[in-house]
Amino acid sequence: MGRHTDERGDAFPRAPTQEEWEAMGQEERDRVVDSLPGEVTWDEMAMPEGDRHFQGKVQAMDALRGYFKRQERKVYLGAELPIYYPGERRFAPDLLAVLDAEPYPRQKWVVSAEGKGLDWVMEVHVGGDRKKDAEYNVQRYARLGIPEYFIYDRARQRLEAYRLASPEAHTYVPMEQRQGRYVSRVLGLELQVEGDRLRFWTGTALLMESDELIARLEELLHGVQHRAEEDSRQLQDEVHRREQETRLRLEAEKHLVEETRRREEAERRLKELQAELERLEQRRD
C-alpha cells in the first residue's frame, strides 16, 4: 500500500496501483485490504452540514433501497464509504451505487478487490463552497470512469447531473432534463426535485420513502377498519331487521292459528245450532 502526500504535506493512505495489485499474491492482497482504513480523516471530509445534508442522503438511500429490494436486484448502496481506486487518493461520496454487487455491509470499497468501480454517485450540497462538488468532483469522478454523477443542491433546491458519453470517455457531459426530470440510465430511474425532497420515479410511479409508505399503509389500514366497522354495522342492522321480520312472521302465524281455531270453533257451533234448529222444526211438525 502506498501513501500520498498532498500540497499541504498531509499523508493519506492509497490502494496499490493496478499493476502492483496484479503482482501480489492473494495473502498479500488480503493484508493490504485489511490495512486500508475504513474511515476518512477530518482533513479529507467537508465540514458537517446539519440535518438537511443528512436527510438528503438518508431519504434518497431509503427510496433506492426499497426499490431495488422490490425489484429483487442486487445493488450495493453506500453512504460516506471510503473508496479506494488503484493508486488514487481515497474519497467518501455522500451516496453511491454499484450494480450487481452483493449488498452486504462494508467498511470500505477497494476497487481492485471488488473487481469493479462505482456506477453512480450523488453528492448533497447544503452550504459552503460548491467548488468541490461542482468542479473538482466533476473532473475527478469522470477521470475515474464513474458513469453518472448527480449533485443535489438542497440550498437551491436544484439538481445537476452528468454522465460519461461512452465507457471509454473521461469527461462528463451534462445531462438535459426531460419534462423536468433527469433520466439515470444506471439506476433505470428518473430524478426530480419536488419541494424539499429529491424524488425518484419509475415511469409514472413515484418511489415512496419508508415514512411515506408507513403513512400510506396506515391510511389504507384506517380505511379498511372503517369499512369493516361500516360492514359490521350494516350486518348488525340486517340481523336486527331479520329478527324483526322473524318476530312479526311468528306473530302473524300465531294470529293466523288463533283465527283458524276461532273460525273452526264458530263453524262447529254453527253446525250444532243448525242441527238443533232442525230437531225443533221436526217436533213442531
Score class of each variant (00 low, 15 high):
Lys69Val: 14
His255Lys: 15
Arg199Leu: 10
Arg158Ala: 14
Tyr85Trp: 04
Ser184Asp: 11
Arg89Met: 09
Gln59Phe: 13
Ala228His: 11
Arg130Tyr: 12
Ser232Pro: 00
Gln274Asn: 07
Arg154Phe: 13
Ala266Pro: 04
Phe54Glu: 08
Pro103Tyr: 05
Arg3Ser: 12
Ala60Trp: 01
Leu96Gln: 02
Arg284Ile: 10
His255Asn: 13
Arg197Gln: 14
Lys116Met: 07
Tyr141Gln: 07
Ala155Val: 00
Gly180Val: 12
Trp120Asp: 05
Leu159Trp: 05
Asp10Cys: 08
Val239Pro: 01
Leu81Tyr: 03
Glu194Lys: 15
Gly203Arg: 00
Leu235Pro: 02
Arg29Asp: 02
Glu194Gly: 14
Arg163Asp: 08
Phe54Gln: 12
Asp133Cys: 05
Gln236Ser: 13
Lys132His: 13
Lys74Ala: 15
Val173Ser: 12
Gly56Ile: 04
Tyr85Gly: 00
Val33Trp: 09
Val111Met: 03
Val239Glu: 03
Arg158Phe: 05
Ala97Ser: 05
Val111Leu: 03
Phe91His: 07
Met1Gln: 08
Ala113Ile: 04
Ala15Tyr: 00
His125Gln: 06
Phe150Gln: 03
Pro93Thr: 00
Ala275Pro: 02
Glu176Leu: 08
Lys116Gln: 13
Lys271Leu: 14
Ile151Cys: 09
Ala134Thr: 11
Trp109Ala: 00
Glu264Lys: 10
Lys108Cys: 01
Pro167Ile: 01
Ala275Tyr: 12
Val40Glu: 07
Met45Gly: 00
Pro37Gly: 09
Glu190Val: 03
Leu144His: 06
Glu219Val: 04
Arg227Cys: 04
Glu148Trp: 08
Arg70Met: 15
Glu176Arg: 06
Leu81Trp: 05
Arg263Glu: 09
Lys108Gln: 01
Leu187Arg: 11
Val183Ile: 15
Val183Ser: 13
Val58Gln: 09
Asp133Ser: 03
Glu148Pro: 01
Glu49Thr: 04
Arg216Leu: 12
Gly9Gln: 05
Pro86Ile: 01
Arg262Asp: 05
Met61Trp: 11
Pro174Trp: 07
Glu7Leu: 15
Phe68Asp: 07
Gly188Leu: 03
Val40Arg: 02
Glu28Leu: 06
